[in-house]
Amino acid sequence: MTDNSKSFFEFEAVISSWEILLKGFAVAMFAATLATALAIILGLVVALMRLSTVAIYRWIAFAFTQFFRGVPLYVLLVWVYFGLAIAVNINLSAILAGVASLALLNAGYLSETFRSGILAIDSGQIEAGLALGMSKQDVFKEIVLPQAFRIIIPPMGNQYVDAIKDSAILSIIGVPELMRESQQLANLNYQPFEFYTCAGLLYLIAVALVSRGTNRLEKRFCTQGAQN
């Protein structure tokens, strides 16, 4: 162990740069939240396409899910930001490339979640809705979605947690999020241990808060059984 004249752990530098770290944390949360929101919309569209009666929609949706569930975020990010952007000569800002990649990836996972959530609704529910004279669209909106929503709250929360964790990878393309700022501060102050510990703690807090929020939502909406 190194023998320093000063104390072993020095968190003064971390504390004095709290403003930068907090800003980085906000950027990370912004990126993760925006990406998850986009992924929910896109995921729903893809899930509906997969359940469509038109074969070509199903194939496109299937290819989409398989592709984005198979590719690692790091590879996608590097491919989009360093490969695609250079090849077709578009000026993609780092944050845009990052959020887009994160959203596409999460949409791949969420579409499967949505699909299984929708399929889990008993077909009797749909038949009953149709028998009451509701239109197909109304049945979906008023009967299937609200029930499917209850089922998918927990996996959706997990996906949000994953997005928060994955957002750390955005630092490699220079998005000024928490991990990027921590890296720079760690190098500047030559205190990697302190800064990375702090970053880890902040992610830990964010994940714990989201998990707690998901649990609360689940308790609120899932008091009755969603099936049948």
């Binding site: 957002s167 991990m179 890296q183 714990a208």
Partner: peptide, 12 residues
């Protein structure tokens, strides 16, 4: 270890 991103853990 479920909550800390792998990326952060790696650097840490």
């Amino acid at each position: 270890f479920k909550s800390i991103p792998l990326f952060v853990l790696l650097f840490w």
